[in-house]
Lab assay of single mutants.
Amino acid sequence: NKFNKEQQWATYEILNLPNLNEEQRKAFIDSLKDDPSQSANLLAEAKKLNDAQA
Rank of each mutant, 00 (worst) to 15 (best):
N1S: 02
K2T: 12
K2Q: 15
K2F: 12
K2D: 15
F3N: 09
F3M: 03
N4G: 09
N4Y: 10
K5A: 15
K5S: 12
K5E: 15
E6R: 01
E6F: 09
E6Q: 04
Q7A: 10
Q8V: 10
Q8W: 11
Q8P: 03
Q8R: 07
Q8A: 07
W9E: 15
W9G: 04
A10H: 07
A10R: 03
A10S: 04
A10V: 13
T11G: 05
T11F: 15
Y12P: 02
Y12M: 14
Y12W: 12
Y12I: 12
Y12K: 11
E13F: 07
E13S: 06
E13M: 12
I14L: 05
I14D: 01
I14M: 06
I14S: 01
L15K: 07
L15M: 13
N16S: 12
N16K: 12
N16M: 09
N16H: 10
L17T: 00
P18Y: 05
P18A: 07
P18F: 04
N19I: 01
N19S: 07
N19P: 00
L20T: 00
N21L: 11
N21P: 02
N21I: 06
N21W: 06
N21M: 03
N21E: 08
E22V: 06
E23F: 11
Q24M: 04
Q24D: 05
R25I: 05
R25N: 01
R25H: 03
R25E: 01
R25D: 00
R25Y: 03
K26Y: 08
K26E: 07
A27R: 12
A27V: 11
F28M: 04
F28H: 01
F28Y: 08
F28S: 01
I29D: 01
I29P: 00
I29Y: 04
I29E: 02
D30S: 12
D30L: 11
D30T: 12
D30N: 12
D30F: 07
S31D: 07
S31I: 08
S31R: 09
S31L: 12
L32S: 02
L32Y: 02
L32Q: 02
L32H: 01
L32M: 07
L32V: 10
L32R: 00
K33M: 14
K33T: 12
D34A: 14
D34L: 14
D34H: 11
D34S: 14
D34G: 10
D35P: 01
P36W: 07
P36I: 04
P36L: 04
P36F: 05
S37H: 08
S37F: 06
S37Y: 05
S37R: 07
S37T: 09
Q38F: 05
Q38W: 04
S39D: 04
S39I: 15
S39V: 14
A40G: 14
A40P: 05
A40S: 13
A40K: 14
N41H: 11
N41V: 09
N41F: 15
L42P: 00
L42F: 09
L42D: 01
L43E: 02
L43I: 08
A44D: 12
A44N: 12
A44K: 13
E45V: 11
E45T: 10
E45K: 08
A46R: 00
A46I: 02
A46G: 02
K47Q: 09
K47T: 04
K47V: 11
K48G: 06
K48M: 12
L49E: 03
L49V: 11
N50S: 10
N50V: 01
N50H: 02
D51R: 06
A52K: 12
A52P: 02
A52Y: 10
A52H: 10
Q53T: 05
Q53G: 06
A54S: 12
A54Q: 12
A54E: 12
